[in-house]
Design a binder for these strands. Structure first.
Lengths: 171, 171
DNA sequence: TTGATTGCAAAGCATTTGCATGCTA
DNA sequence: TAGCATGCAAATGCTTTGCAATCAA
C-alpha cells in the first residue's frame, strides 16, 4: 500500500525527465516525494525546509529548480495569493479550482464553479480569445475572523497565518 | 472645458491629502495630472518616464509613493498581469472589471460580467466569507495573434507588446 | 517654525543565474 | 566519458526605506 503511493505521479515525473533528456537524481526524488506527501500550498522556501529535515545537504536552488520541473511535468501548479510569493500546489489528478483567501488569517479555501467556468469561456469567445488558463481569487474575512473581529476578547484558535497579505494586488 | 478636466478626481485627491494631514506639492499635482490623462495600465516606472518629460527633477521614489497615495485615495487600482510587475489603472468612476490578457502580444481587454459577480458573491457566502475584493484574469491568444500563428508570413500590426509575460503565475 | 516631502542611494526580498565540482547514463 | 545536476555565491529586478536637504502650511 505505502509502496504504491504516488506511483502514478512518480511515473509521470520519470517520463518527463527522460523525454527531456534530463537525469534522475536522489535530490529530485526526495523533493518530489516530500512535495507529494504535503497536501498544502508551499513556497519553494517552505519545501526547502521540509527537505532539509531529511537531507540537509540539499540546496535552495535545487528545490527551486525541481519545482519548476514539476510544474513543467504537470505535477505542480504555481499560484499567488497576493503576498508576492509563489506557492505551489498539486496539479496532477486534481480538478481545476479557484481560491478564496482570508485577508486576516491567510486561510485558503479551494472551490470550483462550473457556472463560472462556462461564463468565462463564453466571454473569451466573445472577444475572440483562445483561452489557455485563468485565475480567479477572492479575498475577504473568513467566518472565524469575522467573529474575532466582532469580539476582540476572543483568542485566535491557534494556527499561524500561512499567507501574510501585506498589500493585496491583482484585484 | 479643458480646465474642468479631472476636476472631481483632483478634488478627491486634495480631500484625501487634507484628511490625512499631508501636503499638496507640485510633484504630486503633476504626477496626478499625467496619471489621469493617460488611460492605460502603467507601472510606476512607465509613469516615471512620462513625468520625466515634463519635469526631469522628479524622482522615481516620488512617483512610486504618489501612486500608493492615489490608490489609498481610491483614484488608482493596482493590478498584476503575470509578469511580476505592478500596474496601475484608473479606479475612480470606473466600473469594476476584470481582465483578459493576450499571452503573445500582451494586449489587455477589460470586461465585466454581472453573472460572474453574482456567482462569486454566492460562493463566498456559502463559505461564510465576507468578501472585500476579487481578481479574475484570463490568459490566452487574442484573435490577431491566433491569425499570426496560423500564418507565420504575416507581420505583426505594429504596437510593441506592453506586457511581456515571461512565466504566468496565478492560474 | 514645524514637520511633511523629496530624491538619492542603499536595503530588502524573492527569484534567477554563473560557475566549478559532482554525478547519472 | 560526456554533459546534466548541484549548491554556493552573486546577480537580478522590482519594491521599499533611511536620511539629509527642502519646502508647504
Amino acid at each position: 500500500m505505502k509502496a504504491k503511493k504516488f506511483e502514478k505521479e512518480k511515473e509521470i515525473f520519470l517520463e518527463h525527465i527522460q523525454k527531456a533528456g534530463l537525469r534522475r537524481t536522489a535530490q529530485r526524488d526526495l523533493i518530489l516525494e516530500i512535495f507529494l506527501k504535503t497536501e498544502d500550498h508551499l513556497t519553494s522556501e517552505d519545501l526547502y525546509w521540509l527537505v532539509q529535515k531529511e537531507d540537509p545537504s540539499v540546496g535552495h536552488t535545487t528545490v527551486y529548480r525541481t519545482l519548476k520541473l514539476l510544474t513543467e511535468a504537470g505535477l505542480a501548479r504555481e499560484v499567488r495569493f497576493g503576498d508576492n510569493k509563489t506557492y505551489y500546489e498539486h496539479h496532477y489528478d486534481h480538478q481545476h479550482h479557484d481560491h478564496l483567501i482570508c485577508t486576516q488569517c491567510g486561510k485558503v479555501v479551494e472551490f470550483f464553479s462550473e457556472e463560472i467556468e462556462n461564463l468565462q469561456d463564453e466571454i473569451a469567445e466573445n472577444f475572440g480569445f483562445r483561452l489557455s488558463h485563468h485565475s480567479l481569487r477572492m479575498w475577504g474575512l473568513c467566518s472565524e475572523c469575522q467573529r474575532l473581529q466582532a469580539d476582540p476578547n476572543l483568542v485566535p484558535s491557534g494556527a499561524q497565518p500561512k499567507v501574510r497579505v501585506k498589500s493585496v494586488v491583482g484585484t
